[in-house]
């Protein structure tokens, strides 16, 4: 099953390289087509895979460490606080290259705020963390709304940005994100068993030898950093982090040793597919924001799973 899925993923990667505004025959490509393939299409496909994996991985970790099947980049405030920086950068007309940096900046500020708010007596409380995240979300959204209201000329840019998409992709950004993904993935898989213990109540996990508080903090910080980096480059792409871990759990069990891998893989698969659709659904080179497609694809699939095998997602 694992091999099959990896094979399917690689096949999708290859196939989606050939889908886009211009159909490219890889065996008879003109120089310009070859260049489009190598310097635009390929990095973009790989980038969508990396971002999808980042979102899937962060969702998987969020849901377990925050003990909430609805935890994802939205409920923790990570997505909207990152979006805030980008929106302000667009509204003030900063050069395009500075947009991801601004997004990362506010994303990290949001992370620290939520983290400190949810820490009482040096103990991280998962429920407080979600509450703090939701509050962060509300505050960031209100500032974003203000920016949309006040900077009318930037309105369409802001709206398009918020819908998510792979705007400008080059190899250096791709390498940066891939490095962030790889490091976090290795950090998480090295602690997969520890993370499993977080499925138990806090006292049981602690007496099994897990420093619950420290593990939860580390996991939260890394997961949020993943989201901040992803959002800063692609805008807000929802539902991947929420749905993919549940699907992975339903198909391959809850064990984090499996779930970390499959959440990343399925996240990558979903986003590669969604981006291929967004690139090609409108003929002539126009694009549909990818966030719309992930929400639609993911939502419909989730509904199907919810009806057919709900008990495998979470109890209740």
């Amino acid at each position: 099953m694992k091999k099959l899925l990896v094979g399917l993923f690689l096949l999708t990667l290859g196939a989606s390289c050939l889908i886009g505004a211009t159909a490219i025959n890889p065996f008879a490509a003109s120089p310009i087509e070859r260049d489009i393939l190598l310097s635009l299409r390929l990095p973009r496909v790989l980038f969508s895979a990396v971002i999808g994996a980042m979102l899937g991985l962060s969702g998987s970790v969020y849901q377990l460490t925050l003990k909430n099947p609805l935890a994802d980049s939205f409920t923790t405030g990570a997505a909207s606080s990152s979006a805030l920086g980008a929106v302000l950068a667009i509204a003030f007309g900063l050069p395009v290259a500075l947009v991801p940096i601004a997004a990362l900046g506010t994303g990290l500020i949001g992370l620290i705020t939520v983290y400190r708010l949810s820490k009482t007596n040096n103990v991280i409380n998962p429920v407080t963390m979600i509450l703090a995240g939701v509050v962060m979300n509300i505050i960031a959204s209100s500032v974003i709304s203000f920016a949309k209201y006040f900077f009318e000329d930037a309105l369409s840019s802001i709206v398009f940005w918020l819908m998510g998409g792979f705007f400008v992709v080059d190899w250096s950004k791709l390498l940066l994100c891939a490095a962030v993904l790889l490091i976090s993935y290795l950090l998480f898989t090295g602690r997969a068993l520890h993370l499993n213990m977080l499925a138990l109540d806090e006292h049981s996990a602690q007496t099994l030898g897990v420093n619950v508080n420290r593990l939860r903090s580390i996991a939260f910080v890394i997961a949020t950093a993943l989201v901040a980096v992803a959002v800063s480059h692609t805008g807000v792409i929802g539902f991947v982090g929420l749905i993919v871990p549940h699907v992975a759990r339903g198909l391959f069990g809850s064990d984090m040793k499996q779930n970390l891998f499959f959440s990343s893989l399925l996240g990558a698969l979903l986003l590669v597919l969604a981006d291929a659709v967004s690139r090609s659904i409108i003929p002539g080179g126009a694009e549909l924001p990818v966030g719309i497609i992930t929400a639609l694809l993911g939502g419909v699939f989730f509904l199907y799973l919810l009806r057919t095998r709900r008990e495998r997602f979470w109890h209740g």
Partner: peptide, 17 residues
């Protein structure tokens, strides 16, 4: 964890294990 184990009064396991 090698010295003592604890059975808590109530127990939960989030997600299907």
């Amino acid at each position: 964890a090698l010295l003592f184990a604890l059975l808590t009064q109530t127990s939960e396991v989030i997600f299907p294990f």
